[in-house]
Amino acid sequence: MGADALLKLHHLHLELPDGTALLEDVSLTVRRGDALGVVGESGSGKSLTAMSVMGLLPGLKASGSIGFEARELLGMKDREWRRLRGAGMAMIFQDPMTAFLPVRSIGAQIDEQIRLHERVSRREARARTVALLGRMGVPDPEAAAKRYPHQLSGGLRQRAMIAMALSCGPALLIADEPTTALDVTVQAQILTLLCEIRDSGAGVMLITHDMGVVAQTCTHVAVVYSGLVVEQGPVAAVMARPLHPYTQALLEAIPPLDGPRPDALPSIPGRPPAPDARPEGCVFAPRCRFVRPDCAVRPALREPEEGRRVACVLYDA
């Protein structure tokens, strides 16, 4: 991929000590100034992918490659990973309460995060915290910094968590379902903020199960199904003409907001396989309407068109 690739996962594979593969084969790229949406159903492996990049999965065996700014992260020592978290990469979660301690003000926690990575005075750190909260659209940031997490609304807590994640200027921001617990009107505010962060030059990896969120926030998308990336490409192209039958079915299952109302929504029969019961061939085969004999061999991720990748026999030349 291009020289500006910030994060590149290549055949990332993750297994439990008993040999069960939680992630089979995840390959994806995030460039600077791009936002990659990672979509898939519950249990498909989105969060595990994010946690692998952050080096937060002790006890699971990872293989393949995680390239970040020309370094290989797999096999790195904990100490090196800790240094990378904060200034190199940072993560935000669905529930901001998990990112903050309940007993200290959010400002104190952001100050501390800044001082962990840089030698600045308390005063300077606080000034930066307040400026950051302000940039995140927190009203009256000075007063907000003195509040405890539970004293803020869900939307403000999410902004505070994003401020903390950005406090050391990470090159990569990973957001795991950051708006799933929020109302749509507040979600729209947070998504706007993520777009601004992306436009300021950071790489963003946005994990979500909502195709609409991807379409409105991301430049690229990777579709994950049962621990594999099955399709990847520029958002506009994938939305306009999804290649993989699973991507097609996911988009069709969204009820329309205008136009004629269908009697029944196209739905995907069945459900995704458990990690220890994946079919041998294409993992989507039991639910796929195009299944044919050669699907019994697992298709590799190929690039049938410039910039678009898909793992499906329909596109094998």
Binding site: C195, G212, V213, A215, Q216, T217, M239, I254, L257
Partner: peptide, 9 residues
């Protein structure tokens, strides 16, 4: 505010 595949934010 409903995010949709077919329109911008």
């Amino acid at each position: 505010a409903v995010p949709r595949p077919d329109r911008p934010l």
